[in-house]
């Protein structure tokens, strides 16, 4: 199974217009990478740019896609709902414009007790536009 064959919607609990990543490019024990082109019809696009909540959700969903991949293809269980537990020391340089492609990289710091802590970075054309750290927690329903 190639990563490029996977529809990210299968890996995320978020659906419809709240999906903020386009494709999962790379995954291993310590990191995950997604790419996403900013589309005009994204709900968080305003005046031709993806606003802060869209950018932050893109980061969170990159981490969530990794969790979803492991649930679905490694543990063979259903995709669980994860929510942001904490965001820390996260700097945004600018909001990406419609048409630009985001490369979002999350590196796992810790992955214990249903909580994933990641260092994250969003690049556009090789330049970092946002970076910081985030915690994602799985909630049980």
């Amino acid at each position: 199974m190639q990563l490029s064959d996977i529809d990210v919607r299968e890996l995320l609990p978020q659906q419809g217009r709240f999906v903020m990543i386009e494709s999962l490019k790379y995954i291993d024990a310590i990191m995950a990478v997604t790419t996403t082109r900013v589309e005009e019809d994204n709900i968080f696009v305003e005046d031709g740019a993806l606003t802060e909540p869209g950018l932050l959700e893109n980061i969170a969903q990159t981490a969530a896609a990794r969790m979803g991949y492991i649930c679905k293809y490694v543990d063979k269980t259903g995709v669980k709902i994860g929510v942001i537990g904490e965001i820390k020391n996260l700097v945004i340089k600018r909001c990406p414009c419609v048409g630009e492609e985001l490369t979002t990289i999350v590196e796992i710091v810790t992955d214990i007790f249903s909580t994933l802590m990641v260092q994250c970075k969003v690049n556009v054309n090789g330049t970092v536009i946002a970076q910081g750290s985030m915690k994602i927690s799985v909630i049980n329903h």
């Binding site: 978020q14 659906q15 709240f18 999906v19 802060e52 959700e57 942001i84």
Partner: peptide, 15 residues
């Protein structure tokens, strides 16, 4: 969409 059958206020929307 966040989430189907299970509405939770997205953390990014609180921001």
């Amino acid at each position: 969409d966040h989430f189907p059958e299970n509405p939770i206020t997205p953390g990014v929307c609180i921001i």
